[in-house]
Design a protein around this nucleic acid. Structure first.
Lengths: 245, 245
DNA sequence: CCGATCCTGTCAGGTCACCGACATTCATCT
DNA sequence: AGATGAATGTCGGTGACCTGACAGGATCGG
């Protein structure tokens, strides 16, 4: 999931200053932001036409905390792009719940199921009041089928997700829970913070919450992390990296 | 430069004997096969030009068992496509070795590192005497930058690998080793057989070989699998699926 | 045919993480 | 401010998996 996490404060301010008259321009900016999020494209620069095509098909949604964006097993309705807030991807429920990942601004989902024409493998629930962008299935396919720069960029976006997924696989295989926790905290930290409850972190490792809590207290005792309410502070990334190996 | 150092002498000789016309047709066939492997393309049919472009850039190699195709940490030299045989992807060594996956005919690798411009995350070793196809890095980028049908198909290829990786992640999270073994056998079986030594299977789960062996004997006692030398027979897929849930 | 090498089968001891449960602290809403 | 729900801190018993080691069988080379 380590797609580009871009500071969007400056952008938001610019949008406010523009006002209603610049609605068209705001849409273009939105599209350009998405284009930056969807992969890198040094070898496929985006044409103004491609950005405009994106701008006209993107829809914006305000979604409140707790909303179920989609449910596992159903066909994908379209592509979701997180503009602001977080979205949790999970399977199962109760004590057998596993968290596949947590989307943050700049992350994309739903496209894989569309590309492969398979049902969604997990459910998505919105963690904070959020702003989301969406593409319908047909708009998405049309974009890919007509714009090579967009297809090329989307390719690198999916590639980076694959690399992240394989990295997480390696982080789990044959490692002690301590090493897994250290790795997870490093992966998920943004600005030295991991704003997730221990229950969720445990579900991301397929571990029990008490086991995770024990390890977190050990890490805190060693000065590597700070444990707060529904959040972990990463105090010593280098020390964690040493544990994670 | 592992590309140029591979033993391709036999192939070169065969091509010379064939003559120009046969060589061209063989190359086209090869390219069409690759195109089928690299994703589905119901919405992006391949043009004859695209297939021809592929055909002219593919190189064929015969590689003998045990060859190290590439090593983790180095930049990717190009894209590899397995035509025949198997290739093992792994990290680490000794008893801390983890097997990321085993490539079989039709599988592709090396493209992710090129797309993201990152070093290869694992090493690749050839398990059987094999036939491989390759694309150089620049040919690959050129293909993607000029042919939309190929970019579109490659996109679905990477997408399906991502789905598989996430599936394996879910197969590991919070499941007993027995469930993991059952899942792995179902995933890796081809024609009801899994032709891998227990040491490799254990490394794919990040488990120890004795632990795996104990579970395999239990499964054999229950008539779900047959244990042979360096191979497992899947006798009762439904029974395994029930265990894997 | 024989040695070398890989693979399988198996064992005991020790450790680690699961499991259910409970009390406590924190945040939020009325 | 008080009530309510959620998240944290903590505890033992139990079972599962790891560790290291060794013996025996299969395969392949000379």
């Amino acid at each position: 999931m380590p797609l580009s996490r871009l500071p969007s404060a400056a952008m938001d301010q610019a949008m406010r200053l523009l006002g209603a008259a610049g609605q068209e321009e705001a849409a273009i900016r939105q599209a350009a932001w998405v284009a930056r999020c969807v992969g890198r494209g040094e070898s496929a620069p985006l044409t103004p036409e491609a950005v405009a095509a994106l701008a006209h098909t993107l829809k914006q949604h305000r979604v409140e905390r707790g909303t179920l964006l989609f449910q596992g097993g159903q066909p994908a309705a379209g592509v979701w792009i997180v503009r602001e807030g977080r979205v949790e991807l999970s399977v199962g429920s109760g004590r057998r719940r596993a968290v596949v990942g947590v989307l943050r601004p700049g992350d994309v989902d739903g496209d894989i199921s569309l590309l492969l024409d398979m049902p969604l493998p997990y459910s998505a629930r919105v963690l904070d009041d959020a702003t989301l962008l969406s593409l319908t299935a047909s708009d998405f396919e049309h974009l890919l089928a007509t714009s090579l720069p967009i297809a090329r960029r989307w390719l690198s976006s999916v590639a980076s997700r694959l690399a992240a997924s394989q990295g997480r696989l390696l982080g789990l295989l044959g490692r002690s829970l301590t090493a897994q926790v250290a790795q997870l905290l490093l992966d998920e930290a943004v600005d030295g913070q991991v704003p997730l409850p221990q229950r969720t972190l445990a579900a991301m490792l397929g571990a029990q919450r008490p086991s995770l809590n024990k390890i977190l207290k050990e890490l805190e005792r060693d000065g590597l992390v700070g444990v707060r309410y529904a959040a972990i502070d990463v105090l010593d990334p280098d020390g964690l990296a040493k544990l994670a190996r």
